[in-house]
């Protein structure tokens, strides 16, 4: 298990990494996390980052902005971001503020997130060539 200030990171195997935000996480300062997190994900050859949001009671605009920033970071590293364990109250409040669907995936819990078929990465897509071509 690795630790970046404010978050616990646990490699789950198969390219899956679990991120548990701690109390010290400051969603208002995403720059503090991007570089070390990206370096760590790349070092782990991560394919999927499972973000456990179960301890977050309310996902406000600031927190949602942090998740968007994290998703962009993951996309750069060709990692799929899956948010899990969102509380009903948080989902209820967030759904009322969103203008469109979030760019990240959501799953009920870690097991469900891991049982999802992995998203085809950019590298896979490049290797396979254009869809439908022979």
């Amino acid at each position: 298990m690795a630790r970046i200030e404010g978050m616990h990171l646990t490699p789950l195997g198969g390219g899956d990494v679990l991120l548990e935000p701690g109390e010290g996480l400051d969603p208002g300062d995403p720059d503090a996390y991007t570089e070390p997190l990206l370096a760590w994900l790349q070092g782990q050859r991560a394919r999927r980052l499972i973000y456990d949001i179960g301890n977050v009671a309310l996902v406000d605009r600031l927190y949602y902005a942090w998740l968007l920033r994290l998703e962009r970071l993951c996309r750069l590293a060709d990692v799929e971001l899956v948010v899990v364990n969102m509380r009903p109250v948080a989902a209820f409040a967030l759904a009322r503020t969103l203008d469109g669907p979030p760019p990240f995936s959501c799953a009920l819990d870690v097991d469900r997130a891991r049982s999802r078929p992995p998203r085809r990465s950019a590298a896979d897509a490049a290797r396979a060539g254009p869809a439908g071509s022979r």
Binding site: V83, V84, M86, P88, A90, A91, F92, L94, A95, R96, L98, P101, P102, C106, A107, L108, D109, R112, A113
Partner: peptide, 12 residues
Amino acid sequence: VQMIRAISLMGA
């Protein structure tokens, strides 16, 4: 739309 979005956020 909000209901559909909230369902997705819960992972269903």
